[in-house]
Each structure stands twice: as structure tokens, then as C-alpha cells.
Design a protein around this nucleic acid. Structure first.
Lengths: 289, 289
DNA sequence: AAGTGTGTGGAAAGATTTTTACAAACGACA
DNA sequence: TGTCGTTTGTAAAAATCTTTCCACACACTT
């Protein structure tokens, strides 16, 4: 161990695997609201986590404490140390790692990116774009670039779960003409294009536009050339202290779009989800030895 | 809260004049080491101030508390409030959209997830895991589940750009045995397993472990069963107001891991990046009209 | 389908903390 | 110097919190 004194949090994480079901429930409640959830009497702690008093006592024992009071005391001194030490800064946000640790540098950059991205989303356009993505009268085509292919795939997996008529255009541009051939007015094309922008994608957007397809592009803060011809553009802040770009904010925007679409036609989406689950379940049982 | 705003400290100052001699002694001891001196059982507090227990009880009563426990509680909440002070700084985060708009509900949930995830990363384990991922003496295998396949792919794309000997195990488990066959001690297996956990992945982890492979698993806050046999586990908070789980925090953790690996062997990674760029550039020119 | 083992919570026993009761100590004033 | 009011601490009672014990429930095995 690098540090002589481990925090209760670390202790919980360390022993987490050895905990039983309701002990895990308690552990989660504790971590979720740390350390507040732990600094009360054992009865209250138990009640808040919705487990029994003995469960708390047992887990505390497993964690290596002599009894609940000792655990309680430990939590208290942690809390106090936090207040007194200069560690007060961002204690809750960041890890206990040193300020200069990569984790902290990253969390800072990513917070910034998310914040910038969010405050640059026009919620009116967002709603309209979600409407297009939800419209099953037309087909929904999804495509990404070299790096963003993973995002496109993620989008495809989810959209496929909540609506019909979704197509993932593989990143091999050789196959694109086949898809373009069938595009008609009323269809929607969701594109991901982060720098370095790909010429292929621009061509594809042009072709789609010629056929009356609604083009939605998710790009970075500098905007892909596609933005100038797209119907809806979303800019995501992607800079991080690294040689490449972050896609956390892109992911967030994508997930929010998916959620919006899901909400738009809920009963249908729900029905699909349930049937999908059934099928997966069936496949699983099928395989069981 | 019966005491709406005032801190215990202010309360003591306010009533100081009305206190008796030994009560003043206690008050001084309290202020001298605030709030630590107050956060203990009444007996301990009394001993530290060198007064009797009833004196403490009486003073606490004069201060307006119903009993010592209430006083105790009050000090505790003060302490806690101090620790989680700057958590409310989400104000400048959201868009101008109405509070109830999906965008805001989402940004809230995601902030929470990121914060929880970060504060639960053990930076020591993080560094060690990054070390394994960077070690090119062994092969690096990457695999994901149904939903997390996209993340695995994203990981693959990036790791491939910064180091040699990376394999993406396709999500079709039929092909896995071929990969397992070649696994040896010193190899690393990076797995993504978010609920619903997949039995296949657990089996794969077991097989890999038997062959001495280091297993790193990125899972959710409830921990995949793989966590109990994995060498390194990272928990990502994934709950959002939706029928499915968010992978924004997972993405963040992944990107941070990638960055750590990149930093670990920079000159080599840089070289690979440059050569990769050259090749992509060449391919682009090739196609240019 | 019965048996074994583990996990869980109810409730009583045990320990600790808090409150109360009371008497000794101190100082003020006649 | 004696009496009174106030303050203070000791010790017992009361309240509360913690631990232990045990029976039940559930899962997994034979």
C-alpha cells in the first residue's frame, strides 16, 4: 500500500467483491452519498440503505473494524481531515489523486468540454432534430468517420432498439452508393464528423441532400464542412490535453438525442424494448448448458 | 433544522456573556479547536475541556439545543456542508432551456455520474492498469458486450494507434476460442461489461485468467461478476432517467486510460501517430480527383 | 423433493451515552 | 460568622445505541 492510512471508501472498494447482496446495497448507498450516509447511528444508516442493523454491523466487521463505533470514528476523522487539509478544493469532484495526476487534468478538461457543448445547444433545433430522428415515415441512415465509427455504431444499436427502419452505413465508403440509391425525401441522415474531416463524408452529405434527405451532423467546435449544407448541426467541444480528441461530449449529446427520440414515441419504443429483451433472454436460455 | 442559519460558533459567541465560569472554559476549548473538539461523545468533550459532563449538557441547553445529540448533529452537518460546498456549481452548466427540458435533466444526471465515477477511481490501481495496457511485451485483447461493443471498438481504434500487438475480439463469441488458444502469461485482456452482464464474457474472463492473463474490467456501479476474478476493476456510474444506461462516464474513463497509456510511452506512440497520419494522407491523395 | 449452507432481519441482551437528581463547594451579603 | 443563592461535579437513572443470538427464507445440491 502506498498510503499508510486507507480511506473507508477504498476499503469498501477493496472488499466489494466479498460482500453479499444486501451488503452491496449498503455499500452502494454509502458510496453514493459519501461520507454523509455513514455518519449517523447504525440504525439510521441501516434505514437509509434499506437494510437491517445487523447487516451494517456485519459489513463493518468485514471491512476490518472492531465495531460500528470504530467505523463511525474513522469516517469522522476523514471528514475532519478533509476540512482541515488544503485538499478542500475539489475533493468531491476529483479523486484523491494529486492535482497534477492525469485523472484530474482530464476531469477538468472534460467538464469544460461538456459545459461548453451544452451551453451551445439550441434546444429548439435539438427538439426538431429529435423529431426527424423519431420519424419512422422515413428511413434513418447513420454514418461515422474513422474515429467516430464507434459512435455511429453506438447510435445504431440504440436507435435500432427504439424504432424501425434504421440503417448503419458501414465506414467502408465503397458500399455507400448502394444506400444512396434508395434514399428519398423524408429520410434522415445522421452523420458524425470530427476533425480531420473526411472528404468522403462531405460527398455523401451532398448526394443525400440532392435527394431531399434531412442531414443532421454532429461535429466538433470548429465545424466540419458538412455543417454548411446540413439541416441541423451540433457542435461538441472535444479538446483535451492529448494528441487526439475526446468524444465524451459527443457521446453525451448522442445519448441525449437518443433519449429524446425514445421519449417522443414512448409506447412504441417500450414495446420494442420488451420484445427485444425477450428475444435476448430466449437466446441466452438456449445457450445454457 | 431548528437552527436555520447560524453556526454553532456564532451561537457560542452570542451567548458567551451569559455563560458561567466553567462553561466559558468549555466554550473556549470548543472554539479553540472547532469543530473537532465538539464532535465526540459528551464525556470526551467534557474531559478535553476539563469540565464535567453535566456542564456540557447545561451549556448545550443554554445554546438553544434540545439535547447534546442535537448539538452534535448540528456540528456534523456544518462540517459536511463545508466539504461538499462547491457541488452546486452546475448552475452555469446547463443551457437556457427550461429546467425541465431533457437537456437539463440529462446534464444533471451525467454530471452526477461523472463525479461519482471519478471519486471512485483508485489512482494507484489506475496507474497500474495503465501500465499493463501499455506493456507491449504481452498482447492486448479488447472485448465488449452487446452495447459496449462500440466502446471496445473505440478503445481498439485508439490503442492500435499508440501501440503494437492489439487485438479486437469481435463480439461474436463463436470466434473467441481461437483467440484464447494463443493467450499467454503477460497478455492483458480489457473487458467492458455493463449490466445486463453476459455469461459469455464471464466464461471468457475465466479462461483468460487460467492462462495467466491480466484481466481489466470496466463495469458499472453494481459490478459485473467478472469483477471478482479480475485484476483491476473500474466502476462507472451509468444511471440516467431512461430505459437504458449511459456510457458517458465509461467513455471518459476509457479515454483517460488511453491518454495514460499514450503518456507512458510517448516517443513511440508519437512515431506511430505520425506514420499513421502519413498513410492516411497518402490514401486520401490517391483518391483525390 | 428433502437437505445443507448461507444470508437476512427481528428481537433481546449488553454496552454506552445522555440526562437527571442531588449534595457539596464557593462566594456574596448581612 | 451564618445564611442564601448559585455553580459545579458525582452518581444513579433513563434513554439510546450496538451487538449478539436465533429463526426464517432462499438458493443450490444430492
Amino acid at each position: 500500500m502506498s498510503e499508510p492510512k486507507t480511506t473507508v471508501r477504498e476499503l469498501i472498494r477493496e472488499k466489494y467483491a466479498t460482500l453479499t447482496a444486501s451488503e452491496k446495497k449498503l455499500a452502494n448507498a454509502l458510496l453514493e452519498n459519501y461520507p454523509a450516509a455513514g455518519i449517523a447511528s447504525i440504525t439510521v444508516v441501516a434505514q437509509n440503505a434499506d437494510v437491517s442493523t445487523p447487516t451494517v454491523a456485519r459489513m463493518v466487521g468485514k471491512l476490518g473494524f472492531k465495531g460500528f463505533p470504530q467505523f463511525h470514528q474513522s469516517l469522522l476523522s476523514e471528514l475532519q481531515a478533509k476540512v482541515q487539509g488544503p485538499t478542500q478544493r475539489r475533493a468531491n469532484w476529483a479523486t484523491e489523486a494529486p492535482e497534477s495526476h492525469l485523472l484530474n487534468r482530464f476531469s477538468q478538461a472534460i467538464t469544460r468540454n461538456l459545459s461548453q457543448t451544452l451551453s451551445n445547444v439550441d434546444h429548439d433545433k435539438f427538439d426538431k432534430a429529435a423529431g426527424c430522428l423519431a420519424d419512422t415515415n422515413g428511413r434513418l441512415y447513420i454514418v461515422g468517420g474513422r474515429i467516430t465509427r464507434a459512435l455511429a455504431e453506438y447510435a445504431f444499436t440504440h436507435f435500432q432498439a427504439i424504432r424501425e427502419r434504421v440503417t448503419h452505413m458501414t465506414s467502408s465508403s465503397a458500399t455507400w452508393p448502394h444506400y444512396v440509391l434508395d434514399m428519398v425525401t423524408g429520410d434522415t441522415l445522421l452523420m458524425f464528423d470530427i476533425r480531420r474531416y473526411e472528404t468522403n463524408l462531405l460527398r455523401l452529405a451532398e448526394l443525400a441532400k440532392e435527394r431531399g434527405v434531412t442531414v443532421i451532423v454532429v461535429t466538433d467546435q470548429w465545424a466540419s464542412p458538412i455543417a454548411s449544407i446540413a439541416d441541423y448541426t451540433f457542435n461538441c467541444w472535444v479538446e483535451i490535453p492529448s494528441a487526439w480528441d475526446s468524444n465524451v461530449s459527443t457521446m453525451m449529446l448522442l445519448e441525449t438525442l437518443i433519449a429524446a427520440v425514445q421519449e417522443e414515441n414512448w409506447p412504441r419504443a417500450k414495446d420494442r424494448y420488451e420484445r427485444l429483451d425477450e428475444i435476448f433472454e430466449a437466446a441466452r436460455l438456449f445457450r445454457k448448458p
